[in-house]
Design a protein around this nucleic acid. Structure first.
Lengths: 348, 348
DNA sequence: ACTTGTTGTGCAATCGATTGCACGCTTATA
DNA sequence: TATAAGCGTGCAATCGATTGCACAACAAGT
């Protein structure tokens, strides 16, 4: 630790409020107010102008860190996803980022990993960075991570997945309704023996979509018993679940998957067994993730407005931040059926 | 502005170094040292233990903001991508995030948008947040954004795309080599009339892959003139470029695209014209983005280790941060040919 | 016994912006 | 002509952690 360099890189002399104030011949508090659009009207026009000119001349940039320390607000929002590499999250992040940017906030993205312990560690890290709020895309139906956030008093919203309870706001698609759309579509074109590839039981999407399946099957007077639960949302898991489904229920003419990746796994397994889709068995997915319109066959699925979901989450969180004791709400984003070529009338 | 609440949320009394020091009966500087693994050996074991116990009891979390202000380091790395919604960047972000997390850094992800002005604005914002370094995935061949970063004295590396010059380190795939692989593959299975869907001229990937195309065609003694440059990396742009290619060179048996999205656009156009792929025309992509293994037909492409590219970028940046005057280097990640079903011997 | 180290802690300045309060001056009102 | 109200600025404390320096206590070497 030699006292050679000042903390800030020596090569660039720092333009601070102080340096501007001196150059403009005013006190730094005056400079601060002159540069703050919300306060500058309290300062004489002439001084405002002088300060702004000087700020520009010195290339002044307000130091967000120092401001945060003083105000206790960082204008940073932490976003935790279970797997950054999964393309499903890209549009959600995009939506969040877009809305935040418009409001002067930035997004701290963290990959929480699959297990709770690591997610909690990540969240602690974000809290230490004084994030003003958190968006969790990782929620389990009872989520210990959320408990940590709430205990720390950080405004938090859930996106894409929600808790069973209503401890905080959530922005998710209408999972039940979306799956109903899927089943109704299959039923309307004549399918009677429909199987379901369910998502994991500890995720809201898994159980809610399954409920949608059950409800819709009941409404159509069909037998809802052909269900296999996948161990996770992935193609391999979808493939093994499909294998199990086909082995146990040999007369199925359609499969409604809880998620596109599971549906893709189903397509793989069908292909492996030489079962034509949609000729022998129709497959419908859920999410409408990028590129599923070009797989073979183009996947019929349920579209979720991921980007608008992200935006809504950001908007909701910002409201929650400004109005501390806002009541939690569960926002549902409508789902849309997208018919492509992986579904068709059941064969003869 | 009523003096009602302290800046920090009133509901949670803040555990600070001060409060711990008091409770442990030592000075806060001593507490700081006791809690810092790098310094704690200078403090008596007994005091260290007392402080740690107290810190734990109060649920102390070191305030990263305050530390940043003092040290001038934020342990934050800004990452700028041109389009967060594009799934190609997901694995890169994943790689960056993974490496950073292991080193105690966090990642500030920002969507810079397509134009320079907005990218510069974003970068200014990141600089104001005192990021310790920047990763740009947006680089043009001569990039004004990089100029801003360099002028501000922020360690910066480029990922995925690079500049023509060597103003700073870049981590990209071997674009020339990758495209050579692609062309050699086509030539080796008998193609002689090969067209190229080039990427934008202002991006390194566009020109370098085109160079790879030219070189490989020359090496194979083939005519490299069938080239159309796409206006951007997107499916629609790929489709119109393909249309132009097919209209001008009617005897092509294969198309080497600069990017998977362009290749997908090509597939679309071929389908629209009723030209069978790979029977009449083979198509090869570049990037091996998620799901292209399941499109119709499964896309032959060139795989790029996106995740390892991200990791390498993070590693390189961190080195550059700790060793300020490190020489810029251009790191190339090897590319691999992935043969699937969109390429085949030319038809009879 | 006296210098020279060594070790463990305390002290206080510092990072840069923000903001409640006070003060002096001008203008309007009684 | 007082008195009040308002306006533009300056003052100084504050946010919480870090760190160079000082200093006391004690050990070791001459």
């Amino acid at each position: 630790m030699k006292p050679i360099l000042s903390p800030r890189s020596a090569s660039h002399r720092t333009a601070t409020l102080q340096s501007i104030a001196e150059a403009a011949g005013v006190h730094r508090s005056t400079a601060a107010r002159a540069l703050d659009p919300a306060q500058s009207h309290r300062i004489s026009a002439e001084v405002v102008h002088r300060v702004q000119a000087e700020a520009h001349r010195q290339g002044y940039r307000r130091d967000a860190i120092a401001a945060s320390l003083r105000t206790g607000r960082s204008r940073l929002i932490g976003v935790v996803v279970p797997d950054l590499a999964n393309p499903v999250f890209a549009p959600i992040l995009d939506g969040i980022g877009e809305h935040l940017a418009g409001m002067g906030y930035s997004m701290l993205v963290a990959d929480g990993g699959a297990n709770e312990a690591s997610q909690i560690k990540i969240v602690e890290e974000l809290i230490a960075r004084r994030v003003d709020g958190l968006v969790l895309a990782t929620a389990k139906r009872q989520d210990p991570v959320l408990t940590v956030c709430l205990d720390a008093g950080i405004p938090t919203v859930l996106v894409n997945r929600r808790e069973d309870g209503l401890r905080t706001s959530s922005i998710v698609t209408d999972d039940v309704g979306g799956m109903k759309l899927a089943v109704e579509h299959l039923a309307s074109i004549g399918h009677r023996r429909i199987g379901h590839l369910a998502g994991p039981n500890d995720l809201s999407t898994g159980v809610l979509r399954r409920k949608g399946f059950d409800d819709a099957m009941a409404a159509a007077m069909l037998d809802p018993s052909a269900v296999v639960t996948a161990s996770e949302y992935s193609r391999p898991a979808g493939q093994v679940a499909t294998a199990a489904l086909l082995d146990h229920w040999t007369d199925l003419t359609a499969i409604a998957a809880s998620n596109d990746l599971l549906a893709l796994g189903a397509l793989l397994e069908l292909k492996r067994r030489g079962i034509a889709c949609p000729d022998r068995i129709s497959v419908i997915g859920h999410n409408d993730m990028p590129l599923v319109d070009m797989v073979d066959p183009p996947l019929t699925t349920v579209n979720i407005g991921h980007a608008s979901m992200g935006q809504a989450a950001a908007r909701n969180l910002l409201e929650r931040i400004s109005e501390k004791n806002m009541k939690p709400s569960a926002v549902l984003i409508a789902a849309n059926l997208i018919v492509r070529a992986s579904t068709a009338r059941p064969g003869r």
